[in-house]
């Protein structure tokens, strides 16, 4: 169970990282996710059915996601449509596009060679999945880590943090926001392409709930790994994706039917949003109590010392 969540979690990690880029770096809740995830899946599966290799399919899936991000980015920055609505518009449009690409609502792979089959055949599927997931995750995290070390990455972080300050320092903030949307949705679509290969099919409904999954992974990851170092934060997203899968697997093990997984996802998200807030409140309260207690002790001491001085004086 642990092993299978690990493998699945790693395949979902690019989704978590993609959501992290818009939600945390740019401070935008981007609903394009729900369209770009199946977009990546649809593109990958149909390319493979047309005879392209699984690697090409995954790469083109990534690029397709970038294209979806470009559209939302332009709607947001150039047409000044509020980001939430911009995401909804792209997501809705992508539904039709995905239907056109797939031709029907569910397209199975036949005997096409999927990415795991590039690995030694002697390994069992779960190990193959983990290794594949690790390879992809290491590539994605390394690329992003290096990108965030460049001036481009710094400009991206600055734009998400303080737009006025960024443009006053020469940064083309619209360009940065579009770029952020693009790579974010690229990774989300890549995740879709990987999951489709792992499941053996692309489905028009597979995007439903992905934004909740992504956000929950981001928040779970941040509960486990804190820090403002960008590498720590990226790794936290991978951890978040894995732990989230594990939670779902445990829930299924407890007998939840698959149809209830969506509401479960939503509940998990609510919990992980609330946990840090409650944690914080408890911690602050405890520290305040400790601080006040210390103050009181000091007050007591000063009162007793005052009293003793008085005593001394009165004796004089």
């Amino acid at each position: 169970m642990l092993i299978s969540s690990l493998g699945q979690g790693l395949l979902w990690a690019p989704l978590a990282i993609g959501v992290f880029i818009t939600f945390r770096i740019l401070d935008i809740p981007d609903l394009t996710t729900e369209g770009s995830f199946p977009f990546g899946a649809a593109i990958a599966v149909s390319l493979m059915l047309k005879g392209q290799s699984a690697i090409t399919a995954a790469v083109v899936g990534f690029l397709a996601g970038c294209l979806a991000g470009l559209v939302t980015g332009i709607l947001d920055t150039k047409f000044r449509i509020p980001s939430l609505l911009a995401g909804i518009l792209t997501m809705t449009g992508l539904y039709s596009i995905n239907m056109h690409i797939m031709g029907k609502s569910n397209v199975p792979l036949l005997d096409q060679k999927v990415l795991t089959e590039y690995l030694p055949a002697g390994w069992n599927l779960e190990i193959q999945t983990i290794i594949l997931g690790l390879i992809v995750t290491v590539i994605v995290v390394t690329l992003l880590y290096l990108m965030f070390k460049t001036r481009l990455g710094l400009s991206l972080m600055a734009t998400g943090n303080n737009k006025e300050m960024s443009s006053a320092n020469g940064i083309n903030t619209d360009g940065m926001i579009i770029f952020g949307y693009m790579i974010s949705n690229g990774f989300i679509a890549l995740s879709g392409a990987l999951i489709a290969q792992s499941n053996g099919y692309a489905d028009i409904g597979m995007g439903i709930g992905t934004i909740v999954i992504g956000l929950a992974s981001v928040l779970v990851g941040e509960i486990f790994l804190r820090g403002h170092n960008i590498l720590t934060r990226l790794i936290a997203m991978v951890v978040g994706a894995i732990v989230y899968r594990l939670l779902l697997t445990v829930a299924m093990g407890l007998g939840f039917p698959p149809d209830d997984l969506k509401i479960l996802s939503a509940i998990i998200l609510v919990i992980v949003i609330c946990v840090p807030i409650i944690q914080n409140r408890i911690r602050t309260k405890r520290q305040l109590k400790k601080y006040l207690a210390q103050m009181e002790e000091q007050d007591d001491e000063s009162i007793t010392s005052e009293a003793s001085t008085k005593g001394l004086l009165s004796r004089d």
Partner: peptide, 12 residues
């Protein structure tokens, strides 16, 4: 630097 805000050089 207000001019070269987008490049792939290490910033630090």
């Amino acid at each position: 630097d207000h001019q070269h805000t987008v490049n792939l050089k290490w910033y630090q």
